[in-house]
Amino acid sequence: KELVLALYDYQEKSPREVTMKKGDILTLLNSTNKDWWKVEVADRQGFVPAAYVKKL
């Protein structure tokens, strides 16, 4: 499975999103959308801005 690194803190703004902290390592589930990537963090799945994460 592919992992991404959170480059910035992100606070979810809708139930479809997830909160992450800078430095978090997240499991990447889907990166087909260039703006929003689906990730899993702490047993929750949701979207984060693609610009806020980097593939490892």
Rank of each mutant, 00 (worst) to 15 (best):
A6L: 02
L29I: 14
Y8G: 06
F47H: 05
K55D: 04
W37Y: 07
V39R: 00
P15S: 12
V4Y: 08
E12W: 06
K54C: 15
Y52H: 06
N33I: 06
V4W: 07
N33Y: 09
T19R: 06
A6C: 13
L56C: 14
K34T: 11
P49V: 02
Q11F: 15
T32R: 11
A42Y: 14
R16T: 12
K1E: 09
T19Y: 04
Q45Y: 08
K21P: 00
Y52W: 07
V4C: 13
P49L: 05
V18H: 03
T32M: 11
V18N: 03
I25P: 01
A6I: 03
K54Q: 14
Y8A: 11
M20A: 02
Q45C: 12
W36E: 04
V4N: 01
D43N: 14
L29W: 06
N30G: 07
E2P: 11
K55M: 11
Q11H: 13
R16H: 13
T32E: 14
S14K: 08
K1I: 12
V41H: 15
V41S: 15
Y10T: 00
A42H: 15
V39C: 05
Y10G: 00
P15W: 09
V48T: 01
L28C: 08
V4G: 11
V4F: 05
F47Y: 15
L56V: 11
S14D: 12
V4H: 03
M20Y: 02
G23T: 02
Y52I: 07
D43W: 08
N33H: 12
K21R: 13
K13N: 10
S31R: 08
W37H: 03
E40P: 00
M20I: 14
L28Y: 02
E40Y: 07
V18Y: 04
A51D: 09
L26R: 02
V53D: 01
Y10I: 01
G23W: 07
F47K: 03
L7I: 10
E17C: 07
V53N: 00
V48F: 02
K54G: 08
L29G: 01
E12N: 08
G46K: 02
K22E: 07
K38I: 14
E12A: 15
K21H: 10
L29S: 03
D24K: 03
E17W: 04
D24G: 04
T19D: 04
T32S: 15
F47V: 08
L7K: 05
T32I: 09
T32A: 13
L26C: 09
V39Y: 01
T27V: 15
D9T: 06
K13A: 11
D35R: 15
Q45V: 14
Q45L: 08
L26S: 02
Y52M: 11
V39Q: 00
D9E: 06
W36G: 01
Y10C: 02
D43M: 10
D9M: 04
G46P: 01
N33T: 07
Y10W: 11
Y52V: 06
V39S: 00
K34I: 10
K13F: 05
E40S: 10
A6R: 01
W36K: 02
L26G: 09
A50K: 06
V53H: 01
T27K: 12
K34W: 08
L29Y: 04
G46V: 05
T32G: 10
K34L: 11
V48A: 03
A50R: 14
K34F: 08
L3H: 09
T27W: 15
P49Y: 03
Y52D: 03
